[in-house]
């Protein structure tokens, strides 16, 4: 406990002292082959372009050299690539490291301590793409207030979502119909969930929802008239009636603000950080076929933000 506190103090000091005394030197490691990472860097550069005190140095994963990195003495490191993240996690750096553009379930693959790594990895923070459970539950409530049973399929990899969800519905009349299953049995659970639930809330777990299974999940659920709440733009396009998502711009803005404002690590009490900015995307055609009428996406987003602000 003492160690944990000590690390937190040291990390905070480092963050606090550095901008006031020296210009911030940020190293960004990315996969040169990943288009969305390049887009993200582009968006991030736009965000910090008017901040001369911030120097962003990009390093591709294949050219990453730990000694060189140490010699450059960055004030913070941003990792967009999981390979680079693995390497950085293995190092005991004293500088803050931000892992961005990942989901909680994916990050857990190389940072098994998630969702709580404050002790073991006090300098590491994970800017995840997953939307908070409350945000999702609020959306469901906004879409159809009559919904009672929310079906959720999780695997062991995404089982940590169960707790936040349960917490999110505590003060509502909603029920969670959670199916924890093995990856190989997921598709057989779809039929049961679709039959037994009013709506299915999709959790970002590629073992359940992937490019191959997505359409079948949707077809199966709609066979029983059960709508699905998605988690990405593509999901909504495929047939999910609605979902909360954060775009690359929103994500870069969130990260840039954290760097510009030199938010203390203490500002992030968890090892992972939910997106600050988000949008609601809906598939009106599918919703219409299921006889669902709900407010516009902007209204929904606004309602959700308002709700979050209230809290």
């Amino acid at each position: 406990m003492n160690n944990r506190l000590m690390h937190m103090v040291l990390f905070s000091l480092a963050i606090i002292i550095s901008p006031s005394t020296l210009a911030a030197n940020i190293s960004l490691i990315y996969d040169a082959d990943s288009r969305y990472q390049q887009l993200f860097i582009k968006a991030l550069s736009k965000q910090i372009i008017n901040k001369p005190t911030l120097t962003l140095t990009t390093i591709t994963t294949d050219k990453l050299s730990i000694p060189d990195l140490n010699n450059s003495a960055p004030n913070a490191i941003i990792s967009l690539d999981k390979t680079a993240s693995r390497k950085l996690l293995a190092l005991k750096q004293n500088i803050p490291v931000f892992h961005a553009l990942t989901t909680l379930s994916k990050a857990k693959q190389y940072a098994s301590c998630l969702p709580n790594c404050l002790t073991s990895l006090p300098q590491h923070r994970f800017f995840i793409l997953d939307q908070p459970a409350k945000r999702q539950i609020k959306l469901i409530q906004l879409i159809d207030s009559n919904i009672k049973d929310i079906g959720v399929i999780v695997t062991e990899q995404s089982s940590f979502f169960i707790q936040p969800l349960k917490k999110a519905i505590q003060q509502s009349s909603l029920n969670l119909n959670i199916h924890l299953t093995q990856a190989s049995r997921v598709r057989y659970q779809i039929d049961d969930i679709a039959r037994s639930s009013d709506i299915i809330l999709a959790i970002p777990d590629s073992r359940v929802y992937n490019s191959s299974s997505l359409s079948q999940v949707l077809l199966t659920s709609y066979r029983y008239g059960t709508p699905v709440i998605g988690f990405s733009k593509g999901f909504m396009k495929a047939g999910a009636i609605s979902g909360v998502t954060s775009s690359l711009d929103q994500l870069s803005q969130h990260l840039a603000e954290s760097l510009i404002h030199i938010e203390p690590l203490a500002a992030h009490p968890h090892s992972f950080i939910y997106p600050r900015y988000f949008s609601v995307l809906s598939n009106r055609a599918v919703a219409k076929s299921l006889n669902l009428n709900f407010p516009s996406d902007l209204e929904l987003a606004s309602e959700i933000r308002a709700d979050e602000t209230d809290q």
């Binding site: 793409l129 490019s211 359409s215 495929a238």
Partner: peptide, 19 residues
């Protein structure tokens, strides 16, 4: 099973790029 084409660059992060 027919694959769903990725509509967004971020979709790959969610649903996986290499199935």
């Amino acid at each position: 099973i027919k694959r769903i084409l990725q509509q967004d660059d971020v979709d790959g992060i969610f649903i996986g790029e290499n199935v």
